[in-house]
Amino acid sequence: MTVTSAALPRPIAPADVPALAHLNDAAVPAVNELGAAGLAAHVPGCDVALVVPDDDGAPLAFVLAVAPGAGYASENYRWFSEHRPGSLYVDRIVVAPHAHGRGLGRTLYAAVAGRAHELGLGEITCEVNLEPPNSQSLAFHARLGFRQVGEQVTKGGAVRVALLARTLDGGHAGEQVRALTA
């Protein structure tokens, strides 16, 4: 598996689902386990569903984001719908461990920011685990300009999350998209 610096996201195809489910489920507890059937059921409800493949087509990273008004039953999506309406919610972003530090997360967030701009949305939102801790993700999101706007306990008390938001200025969204990829 090789990665070029020009790795670009593309829409997730049905054939990607088994490999993406493996990548997702290997990232537990940073994200919740879905399995191939769960991921296949979730992708069509996402407004953004992108994968970054390596030169051989194997997935290195992916992002799923849900627009306002979707019928998504996530506790975190529901919190953002109530407290931060008008945001594009990043349900999950996963980068293969061997591909960390190559800018793939920034590339995927730039695509999410571009889609938020197209939809006329002012924010990108997401959550990151505080318990169990995910300090790498918290630091990554802070570097991208996310700030904590709330906190909640989910999954019946098993997980505590920081609820994060990144504002996108309507007049400067293109500059902010470029800044995310820089």
Rank of each mutant, 00 (worst) to 15 (best):
H117I: 05
P9R: 00
L34D: 10
T181C: 12
G35M: 08
V161I: 07
G69D: 14
I93W: 00
S135Q: 13
A19G: 09
G103A: 10
V95F: 04
Y77D: 10
L168I: 14
R160G: 12
E33N: 04
C46A: 13
A70W: 03
V31S: 01
C46Q: 03
I12V: 09
F62C: 08
A158W: 11
E123W: 03
P44I: 05
A49F: 01
V28T: 05
F62V: 10
V31P: 03
P133M: 06
L60Q: 11
L104K: 01
R160I: 14
V128D: 06
R84N: 04
P53Q: 02
F80S: 01
D55P: 03
A37S: 12
R147C: 13
I124G: 05
S135P: 15
A179I: 10
G69V: 12
P18G: 09
A21Q: 12
A40S: 15
D16L: 08
P59C: 11
P132K: 00
S135M: 08
I12H: 00
M1W: 11
A13I: 07
N134S: 13
R10C: 09
L163H: 03
G105Q: 01
P85L: 05
E33W: 06
V112M: 06
G69I: 12
V28I: 06
P14I: 01
L104M: 07
R160D: 14
K155H: 14
N134F: 07
A179V: 10
D47Q: 05
R84Q: 13
L23Q: 10
P68K: 02
P53D: 02
G171F: 04
L108W: 01
L180N: 02
A49D: 02
A162Q: 01
L20A: 13
L121C: 08
Q148P: 09
V177N: 07
N24G: 12
R143L: 13
V28Y: 00
A49R: 01
G86I: 06
A26V: 07
R78M: 05
A37L: 12
A111N: 06
V94K: 00
G120T: 14
S135N: 08
V48D: 02
D25R: 02
Q148A: 12
A111T: 06
